[in-house]
């Protein structure tokens, strides 16, 4: 992929990550923040994929898949923890 496409895309995803941080701060309760956090993880996955296309290093995509996996585990664990009503129940 040419830098002509990849560099603007990288800049755009970076802007999206910043706006995603804003969404994280604006969440009204903990679940809405969890949703924003999941979205941020997806944006970072896209960022890593684009970086891999730009530099021609396939191993960045490994990091992207691993990050997606970690974000799944984190999301499911947090959601289950919240569903049971916290540590005091």
């Amino acid at each position: 992929m040419t830098a002509l496409v990849a560099v603007p895309a990288l800049v755009w995803v970076t802007v999206l990550v910043v706006v995603g941080g804003l969404a994280l701060l604006r969440g009204q309760d903990v679940l809405q923040r969890l949703i924003a956090l999941d979205l941020l993880a997806v944006l970072v996955v896209a960022l890593l994929a684009l970086l891999s296309y730009l530099r021609g290093v396939p191993h960045y995509l490994d990091a992207a898949v691993a990050l997606a996996l970690l974000s799944l585990v984190a999301t499911v664990a947090t959601a289950r923890y919240l569903a049971t009503g916290g540590p005091l129940e």
Binding site: L31, S71, T75, V76, A79, R80, L82, A83
Partner: peptide, 15 residues
């Protein structure tokens, strides 16, 4: 799976 986990937590918390 992730979105179902969040939705289920939202229902359990009475949304």
């Amino acid at each position: 799976v992730a979105s179902h986990a969040i939705a289920r937590a939202a229902r359990r918390r009475g949304a």
